[in-house]
Amino acid sequence: MARPREFDRDAALKAATDVFWSKGFAATSTEDLVQAMGIGRQSFYNAFGDKRRLYLEALEAYQRNATSCHIGRLTTPTSPLDGLRDLLVGLIPDDDALRCRGCLGNGSVGEFGITDPELMEMRERMIAGFRAKVIERLREGQRLGQIDPEIDIEQAASFIEITMSGLQLAARGGAGAQELHALAAFAVERFRAR
């Protein structure tokens, strides 16, 4: 009896994430995945269950990492406005190949919308903590006199989330880094106290 081949599960998951990120769920075949992951079909099924289970695991890991990076960029600068700018600009890789991939999370919204309760629950869970940090930073900016005191904080947080999605969608559609940086700066300036 042949012994199953050992493989690095984390590396395999990263390879699968890259495939889903590039192609989306529907356009990714099991063959695409096993080729990219460098494992056999039986190892694939034993380790990850099926394509959907793998997609959910890959998407959750991606979103957890992305959310952590977003919060880091938002909260590191002393100035709340700088934090908002860093948050948006940080979504825009200079590398054309990476930038045109957009966002795996936004890709899942594009593919599934509100039709998949499990994906919706994951999305809402990931967004809740991030949104709280955005609101906290916006309120801090108002207290410091950097952000317009007349701005509705809840609407401003929604605007930031939509701007993030828009930048990533535009990147996936081929927008250049310079154009996206200008749009990010324009969005942040809407918050500045006059």
Results as ranks from 00 to 15, higher is better:
residue 1 M to Q: 04
residue 3 R to D: 03
residue 4 P to M: 05
residue 12 A to V: 03
residue 12 A to F: 05
residue 14 K to G: 00
residue 15 A to N: 11
residue 16 A to H: 00
residue 17 T to A: 08
residue 18 D to N: 15
residue 20 F to G: 04
residue 20 F to V: 06
residue 25 F to H: 07
residue 26 A to R: 15
residue 26 A to T: 13
residue 28 T to I: 09
residue 29 S to W: 02
residue 29 S to E: 06
residue 31 E to I: 08
residue 31 E to R: 12
residue 34 V to T: 15
residue 35 Q to K: 14
residue 41 R to H: 11
residue 42 Q to E: 11
residue 51 K to M: 07
residue 52 R to E: 13
residue 56 L to S: 07
residue 58 A to M: 05
residue 60 E to C: 00
residue 65 N to T: 12
residue 66 A to P: 00
residue 66 A to R: 10
residue 69 C to V: 10
residue 70 H to Y: 15
residue 72 G to V: 02
residue 72 G to R: 10
residue 73 R to F: 07
residue 77 P to G: 12
residue 80 P to G: 02
residue 84 L to K: 10
residue 84 L to P: 13
residue 86 D to T: 05
residue 87 L to S: 06
residue 88 L to S: 00
residue 91 L to N: 08
residue 93 P to V: 09
residue 95 D to F: 07
residue 96 D to M: 02
residue 99 R to L: 14
residue 100 C to L: 01
residue 100 C to R: 15
residue 100 C to M: 05
residue 101 R to K: 15
residue 102 G to V: 10
residue 104 L to D: 01
residue 104 L to C: 02
residue 104 L to Q: 07
residue 106 N to D: 07
residue 106 N to Y: 08
residue 107 G to I: 04
residue 107 G to M: 14
residue 108 S to T: 14
residue 108 S to R: 09
residue 110 G to A: 13
residue 111 E to I: 09
residue 111 E to H: 05
residue 112 F to H: 13
residue 115 T to H: 12
residue 121 E to I: 05
residue 121 E to D: 10
residue 122 M to E: 08
residue 123 R to I: 03
residue 125 R to E: 13
residue 131 R to A: 02
residue 133 K to N: 11
residue 133 K to W: 01
residue 134 V to R: 03
residue 136 E to S: 12
residue 136 E to Y: 04
residue 140 E to I: 01
residue 141 G to D: 10
residue 144 L to P: 02
residue 145 G to V: 13
residue 148 D to T: 04
residue 151 I to Y: 03
residue 151 I to K: 12
residue 154 E to H: 05
residue 155 Q to C: 06
residue 155 Q to Y: 07
residue 156 A to G: 15
residue 156 A to C: 08
residue 156 A to Y: 07
residue 157 A to I: 11
residue 158 S to N: 11
residue 159 F to D: 05
residue 160 I to F: 08
residue 162 I to N: 12
residue 164 M to C: 14
residue 164 M to N: 04
residue 164 M to H: 03
residue 165 S to R: 06
residue 166 G to P: 11
residue 167 L to C: 07
residue 167 L to N: 05
residue 168 Q to T: 14
residue 174 G to Q: 13
residue 177 A to Y: 01
residue 178 Q to K: 14
residue 182 A to P: 00
residue 182 A to I: 02
residue 183 L to S: 12
residue 185 A to T: 11
residue 186 F to Y: 11
residue 186 F to M: 04
residue 188 V to R: 06
residue 188 V to M: 10
residue 190 R to W: 04
residue 191 F to S: 10
residue 192 R to N: 02
